[in-house]
Amino acid sequence: MACKVSFVYYFLLLLMLAPVPALALDTLRVLAWPGYADPDLVQAFEKRHHVRVEVTLISSDDALWERLSKREGGDFDVFAVNTAELQRYIDRGISIPLTPANIPNTAKQQPRFRDLSAIPGITRNGAVYAIPYTYSEMGLIYDRKVFKTPPDSFASMWDKRYKGRVLAFQASAHNFSLAATVLGMRNPFHIDGNDFRRVSRHLVELRRNVLSFYSQPEEATELFMQNRIALLFANYGSQQVKMLQNAGADIGYVIPKEGALSWLDCWSLTRGVKNRKLAEAWIDYTLEAPVSRALTERQGLSNTLEDPPTMQKSDKIIWLQQVEDAARRAALWDKIISGDLPEKF
């Protein structure tokens, strides 16, 4: 009997101790990439607004699409997406327009992020769909012992003097855009059908000049350190500069005159947003200096409030866009990387 009583007692005690379901609190559902919403920063936001924030992390574009398209964005309020990827979310109606005026911290952003209409893909029919948050430009890393003056063009990667001492990135879309840029084409994201042969053969030339193509930044660092590399296409931007410097490489980083291709991740609202004000407050919060700086300090990513020291105001940034035919580029790239002779294109 005493046993029964104590059971009941403990049960009641447990009930009392059990966390109260946060029904009373507003909940903000954030879908973001690792490092975009670190727990300590999220906690500060929760405290300030007396809300609960549920952060879901994804690590690939495909995962992002899977999460959002499943219930047409109904599971999340705000998400982080790059400008190229954003297009399909707008097409599908998952991303909805927002009001930059409700996000006062946008005023503190660098000019290149304030002129939203100048960034391809952020606006459509006059409506703003996203607020830039972080980006990474793909500049050129060079060995300072080889280059007395920094290379000023991506064309150096084709320079026969550096044959076997160049590292390029293993990606179809970027490499076609890069080659098109070097060939001086007007829009590297839209290669004319007749120009593909030219660009492809140019990429065969690149292949003949590189030591290899890398995929992971760690891999690139290892190859750089072991193979007397002179030039490295920095797909991961300043993050890679940091890694190489840590590994002891004497390198420089430059954004060549053609301009650096750059991905730009933005915050966007879903059409399932429950509390619009709260979602906007979240975006505003991430644009506060300590939060944005945390991105740079912790992740080595660039924030939109201040340019990284490696970048000049005059540096040209080419925001990535959807390419004209990703499948075609991929198919051609597979042949190029496989070693097909130029005659095959």
Partner: peptide, 14 residues
């Protein structure tokens, strides 16, 4: 002939 490929950029070659 033409179906042969250039492989020097692969680690197993260089």
């Amino acid at each position: 002939d033409l179906d042969l490929q250039e492989k020097l950029h692969y680690p197993y070659a260089y």
